[in-house]
Design a protein around this nucleic acid. Structure first.
Lengths: 156, 156
DNA sequence: TGCTACTCGTTGACGTGTCATCGAACAGGG
DNA sequence: CCCTGTTCGATGACACGTCAACGAGTAGCA
């Protein structure tokens, strides 16, 4: 069972803690969002991205901003459109392309969902952490993200 | 757009960093696992749980250990059984129940996959963090996890 | 024994994510 | 203008996760 370079006890503990925490936190935030506003976590991310840069957005731009694969976004937008959360407009510059805009319902949904979601993030996460921990957390995430992206670039 | 109790800049930065990091890290580890051993992240978790407590395991025990919903586990075990990674035995004590055991292929798969996976976790995560950061990370995860579980208990 | 209530694990329906692939449209060089 | 290669976004097939519901078995109690 012992390969070379196993994890030491502290690393093991941190890693298992991270896995458990992310899974449970994600699930709980998702459940709340669903109960409060009928939105999934993914819906929320799309709506936030659309409302931040208000106005039509190309599918590819949206995918870049969300760091989603284009096919995932295409499927998701189709479902959201069917529910009336977003609308498509065709793109005069490029006949292949499509613009995505928030519908009135979509805007209503995000504006209604956001306060409760932010409050949930605050109460589940930040109310338990002091400033030093928040800084440390950001630094850790940045470091790991940088490594993952380097690795992704190499592997491709 | 300004509800009561928004996130401050540091919190915002930490939160977005966390979301991006977890998404990318999970995806990258999953891709590697898939490429190296033909396993998904979920397969890996199940196989680890089965190999840690060597021998037959009741479905519910497995679900508790993994913190998975029983239906998710049932679906997943069906797929893994179809691929020959696990086997079922019936349970003499309780005719409703089922025992799950690692198959020979399953054991081979986990033993082959584990070293590369651990090495990936090390190189993507822990090689970039010092001891103090690892401790801080574990403390943060524990604190958030405790809050989520309290919240989950209340809400139900 | 017979009744009720509960637990075990499975199932079906449905939303979601990934991969490979597609047709259509663009871009640039002959 | 045509040809070639690329990009845009959509699609089909399939793996995955959740919810509600189910049948079968168990436990408690009269």
């Amino acid at each position: 069972m012992a390969g070379p370079r196993w994890l030491d006890d502290h690393q093991q503990r941190a890693w298992r803690g991270h896995l458990a925490m992310t899974a449970q936190l994600q699930a709980q935030l998702g459940r709340r969002l669903q109960a409060d506003a009928g939105l999934s976590f993914a819906d929320f991310d799309v709506l936030v991205a659309l409302s931040e840069r208000d106005g039509p957005l190309r599918v590819q731009e949206l995918a870049d901003g969300l760091q989603w694969e284009k096919s995932r976004l295409s499927h998701h937008l189709a479902r959201m459109q069917k529910r009336g959360l977003v609308e498509r407009q065709d793109c005069p510059d490029d006949a292949r392309g499509a613009f995505i805009v928030l519908s009135a319902d979509g805007r209503r949904a995000i504006e209604q969902a956001a306060p409760a979601h932010v409050e949930a993030v605050r109460s589940l996460v930040f109310d338990g952490l002091d400033d030093r921990q928040v800084e440390a957390w950001a630094a850790i995430s940045d470091e790991v993200l940088a490594r993952v992206e380097r690795d992704r670039a190499v592997g491709s």
